[in-house]
């Protein structure tokens, strides 16, 4: 029962839906893409990055990707383009550009 799933999608019958609206799969919001909300886009210039990590905690969308304590990129599936990381970076590592 460890992999019990909450049925997604808009056409779930009352017999199949979950009791009381319980959601079984913790953190399944990652399957919902908020990247579409972006009108501006932060672009990370890896070469300029000093790995100070100040962009990481300021991101409201948990979209600064980190591996072994180092930034590796931006999760554009969820980044809403708020630009907080762009402003927070003391080294001006990010460009903030119009979403194409």
């Amino acid at each position: 029962m460890k992999d019990k799933k909450t049925p997604l999608g808009g056409n779930v019958s009352w017999k199949e839906t979950t009791p009381g609206g319980i959601i079984y799969d913790a953190g399944n919001a990652t399957r919902y893409k908020t990247g579409e909300w972006r009108s501006m886009k932060p672009v990370w210039n890896k070469d300029k990055c000093k790995q100070c990590m100040l962009c990481f905690p300021v991101c409201p969308d948990s979209s600064i990707l980190v591996e072994d304590g180092k930034m590796t990129g931006i999760d554009y599936d969820h980044c809403k383009g708020c630009g907080v990381c762009v402003e927070a970076c003391p080294f001006n590592v990010f460009d903030f550009v119009k979403e194409e």
Partner: peptide, 9 residues
């Protein structure tokens, strides 16, 4: 996680 619907920023 990301994928929540709070406002940008």
């Amino acid at each position: 996680t990301g994928g929540h619907r709070l406002c940008a920023g």
